[in-house]
Design a protein around this nucleic acid. Structure first.
Lengths: 352, 352
DNA sequence: TTCCCATGTAAAATCGATTGCGTAATCACT
DNA sequence: AGTGATTACGCAATCGATTTTACATGGGAA
């Protein structure tokens, strides 16, 4: 059984030649058949009469020669690339990548792959990458936290998109419900002097979340004082985001007992800023976050926050896009998902 | 200047018809020229004599009709897809996505796009996705924290790969240096009783990091006691990872003054576990992490850790892969990058 | 025996672009 | 006017698959 060492590189067991790929034509030639026949058999095209013997012969040869159809060629002909594009502002950010994780799972199941492009919120890049993705054969696009300006000729699903555009499905959180959960929680703990953090203007949830908070605060009779509103400006995804703005807030010397952060990342930075001036969370100030990223359950104190089912959002977005692509069911313009209040340690009753 | 509203949908300025894409043939027909000529002009193929007037005419028409070459067709012909594949165990994890961020930046510059596939450490999926990526025309693969078994016929770069495989470049951290930084730091603070956390067996850095730590500990005369070694097993990327193992460690009742965590994520969980039994970090126990993820600077206490330049690793890996693809410079088997010690608050002098 | 149809396979067109080669037309020059 | 070089393109093959159409053979029905 000793290998008589014909080829040096053949040091592993007999492995089919992965390198040199076989084309349909070569396979057909090897079989003494026409490529068309081979194609028909391997794709199990219905309504063709090919005797079982030939079919078996073809399949055996395909396996032997490790035939892998060239997807480029196939796509060129069939106009189905089984590819979609994902537009995302930033990689390396928990929110986006968790959504992407849900997308990836669902796409693979459907036999699709995806291109990713990150644009760092630059409108010109959004435009350019959209074109490039289409040029590369994307049959649809999922845009996460990305402001699209107009419809683009292929199906699109926006995660956290709020503009209504033809051919675009928006998947978004029920922001009013989220605001209710957050503010009811704080209200029931006795908080009335509440500071708010507004998201960056380029973040697509900022506006909607803010409006919802204002509306619900109003309903509860909580005043939204301008001196207690801080605005995020910087484009970053580290807790550093929330640190300086809280310093500003404190500098204003307006009393408050709770802070509604824009998201968990900024909440973590905010808490650090509070702790750094010896304010205790939640004893002196309660802080509530948004998103429920994985780290939220492990900060000190553990972060009370509003959970968004990020992976599920990704899955829903994907399913919705595939529906649009396959024209199975009439597409909906909007799909909302429900938030959930995660009560942990960063909120507590107001000091009496 | 008023728009006389011919087409309802034409509400923006004159926008070229993005939807109906023009093919080379159509463009050529429109011009009364042969597709080949048009192709030659638009691609600026050298050594062809086409008068400037014609060139201008062609370019004008291309712009007018919004001609976008079909990259599938182009790739089929030229065998250059300008696409690479990225294999990654998990999306939604800070380490991987930060590397991907560096990769993405660098690839875009070179005109490449990438497919991502996440395999959750399942060897069968790694194998399958590798094949699929090649089938979709990937000209190279970057495998992050992914154990490849054998060479695959196209250029590969492994980030944090340690096996030497033909045709594969490994980009990795100087682990010995990292271990020195970590242990020298603890040693100089007076720590002698040090607990260690070992990475999961499926994580490709685990072994190398562990060996380096043992070697350096040995050199410093620090005993690595089996009772003070805990093993990560679970496949997760939340701080939860490091929580239960520290509980186990504490249950063993072996005294120790410092803990070297496998990475920052597990360090954060570990710190929580210590704090939850009223041990103070760093007063009672010093903890050092690994990676320097973004959150590390905002935990309480801020995490002392070993920085890996993740985005740079991504860029280096990409450059190296592109070199392999283009055969520019002879490829190296291994590229190491240097770690850096980030001293923050989670380590301190041992209690006297 | 003749005609038709089912059967099994081949041939050719197609998808959209690239590329080596060919050639008619123009030009320069003796 | 004849010769060779240059200019300005067109033709056709090619990439690898799919799909439509065509064709040969054989068997059964009339």
């Amino acid at each position: 059984m000793k290998d008589s060492a014909g080829d040096k590189k053949q040091k592993d067991n007999v492995r089919p030649p992965v390198h040199h790929t076989t084309s349909l034509k070569q396979l057909a030639e090897h079989l003494g058949l026409n490529p068309a026949t081979v194609s028909v058999v391997l794709n199990e095209v219905p309504g063709r009469s090919i005797p079982q013997a030939t079919r078996d012969r073809i399949k055996a040869a395909a396996k032997l020669l490790n035939y892998q159809p060239n997807l480029l060629a196939r796509s060129l002909r069939s106009r189905r690339t089984l590819t979609i594009g994902i537009l995302v502002p930033e990689l390396g950010d928990g929110y986006h990548t968790q959504v992407m994780s849900g997308i990836g799972d669902q796409l693979i199941k459907a036999g699709y792959f995806y291109f990713t492009a990150h644009h760092r919120h630059k409108p010109s890049l959004i435009e350019e990458y959209t074109r490039m993705l289409i040029g590369r054969g994307a049959q649809g696009i999922i845009a996460i936290d990305t402001m699209l300006e107009h419809s683009i000729g292929i199906p699109v699903v926006c995660v956290a998109g709020h503009r209504h555009i033809e051919g675009v499905t928006n998947v978004l959180l029920d922001h009013v419900r989220a605001a209710e959960l957050a503010l009811n929680h704080l209200y029931s703990l006795g908080h009335r002097q509440i500071a708010f953090m507004r998201g960056q203007p380029f973040s697509s949830d900022s506006d909607e979340r803010w409006k919802s908070l204002v509306r619900v605060a109003d309903k509860l009779g909580i005043a939204v004082k301008p001196e207690l509103v801080i605005n995020l400006e910087r484009d970053m995804s580290s807790p550093e985001l929330g640190y300086p703005v809280v310093q500003q807030l404190l500098a204003a010397k307006q009393p408050f007992t709770a802070l509604v952060a824009f998201n968990d990342i900024s909440a973590i930075g905010a808490i650090r800023a509070l702790q750094d001036v010896n304010l205790r969370v939640p004893n002196d100030i309660s802080v509530i976050g948004f998103d429920d990223i994985k780290a939220a359950a492990f900060t000190l104190p553990r972060l009370t926050t509003i959970n968004q089912p990020l992976e599920e959002i990704g899955r829903i977005a994907t399913q919705s896009l595939l529906n649009r692509i396959h024209n199975t069911i009439p597409p909906s313009d909007e799909i909302t998902v429900e938030p959930e209040l995660m009560i942990r340690e960063s909120t507590g009753p107001v000091k009496s």
